[in-house]
């Protein structure tokens, strides 16, 4: 082997090593998962896209007594729905035949009506991420609102379709606005956010947090 060949070989080896090192250093990128449901933008308060799962609804009994636990174990299903998993006060429900958020909302309302005391949350996922507890959110029918401390929410929201308004404990100027259903919560949040007195208005999403 000539010295030139030797140098070339060394250079190639060096490049290969650098490439390998780089791959190892950066690691393999997670493959981005294409969304399967329609995308919506939620302001939390900054805009963030979520994918609506058209095949899932979650029932939650907010009264956590023994009766609720019994209900959660044996929720009443309607046509096009089946229980996938039941925990202490929640039941994950698979739904089929749904092609739009409006249909999904109607299905959720029907499930809620069939299960007195239950809330029917829609399911959102972070787009691009695998469906998991980490990427899963429950779209509730509540809206978090922050006003100036002097502002009166009853007066400000008199013309908005809300069911109730309560103070958020520990948060000066913070309120939770209850609407009729999750899709209405999205609309009400958008409506309230346009008002000059409203510092933040966003639908309340439930998610799992993890111990460390």
């Amino acid at each position: 082997m000539t010295s030139t060949q030797g140098m070339m070989r060394a250079t190639i080896l060096c490049l290969v090593w650098l490439m390998l090192f780089r791959v190892e250093a950066l690691g393999a990128k997670e493959i981005k998962r294409p969304p399967t449901g329609p995308l919506i933008t939620v302001h939390l308060p900054h805009p963030k896209q979520y994918e609506i799962a058209l095949d899932e609804i979650e029932l939650e009994w907010t009264d956590r007594g023994r009766t609720a636990q019994v209900h959660a174990k044996t929720p009443t299903m309607i046509v096009g729905s089946r229980v996938v998993k039941s925990e202490t006060s929640r039941a994950a429900v698979a739904v089929s035949g749904i092609t739009s958020p409006m249909d999904l909302s109607m299905m959720a309302a029907a499930l809620k009506a069939a299960n007195p005391g239950a809330e029917a949350h829609l399911i959102l996922y972070e787009p691009g991420l695998p469906r998991s507890k980490a990427s899963r959110r429950l779209l509730t029918r509540e809206v978090g609102v922050v006003l100036g401390e002097e502002d009166d929410p009853q007066r400000l929201f008199a013309d908005v379709p809300v069911e109730s308004i309560r103070s958020a404990p520990g948060v000066p100027g913070g309120y939770v606005v209850e609407t009729s259903d999750p899709m209405t919560a999205l609309n009400v949040a958008d409506l309230l956010r346009q008002r000059p007195e409203v510092r933040s208005a966003y639908p309340l999403l439930k998610r799992t947090y993890f111990t460390r």
Partner: peptide, 20 residues
């Protein structure tokens, strides 16, 4: 659960609660 990194933080009510 699949493992993916996330980007998440407190939303407005929690931010205000912590600051207060």
């Amino acid at each position: 659960d699949d493992c993916t990194n996330t980007l998440a933080g407190p939303e407005p009510l929690t931010q205000l609660a912590i600051e207060t």
